[in-house]
């Protein structure tokens, strides 16, 4: 994995942050705001639950990546995972 510059990293995260806000607000939510159920569970509940889980997963990947970045800068090995 190539390591992007800190600026690019930051910008990527500002983008994710903004995307997150958009996907949790009107009008995006209207897509799922329907009286439809999936396996008996309303679509909106499912969307919010899995959307939430997904964003946690994204942050998890980010923190893993931060870990590898700081490890890299610690030992200057230059070999990324």
């Amino acid at each position: 994995m190539r390591s992007p510059s800190p600026v690019r990293l930051k910008e990527t995260w500002v983008l994710c942050f903004i995307l997150g806000i958009i996907m949790l607000n009107y009008p995006f939510l209207e897509i799922f705001n329907k009286p439809v159920t999936l396996f008996g569970i309303p679509l909106l509940v499912l969307y919010l639950t899995f959307g939430w889980l997904f964003s946690i997963f994204v942050i998890f990947l980010f923190s893993r990546y931060l870990g590898s970045v700081s490890a890299e800068s610690d030992n200057h090995s230059g070999d990324a995972e």
């Binding site: 930051k10 995260w13 994710c16 997150g20 949790l24 909106l44 919010l48 939430w52 942050i59 980010f62």
Partner: peptide
């Protein structure tokens, strides 16, 4: 209804900014 979730979704979004 479902808006109780926002009290927790908000901080999740905020966590994106924590590193900075």
């Amino acid at each position: 209804g479902i808006d109780f979730l926002l009290i927790y979704l908000g901080p999740t979004l905020m966590a994106f900014s924590w590193w900075f």
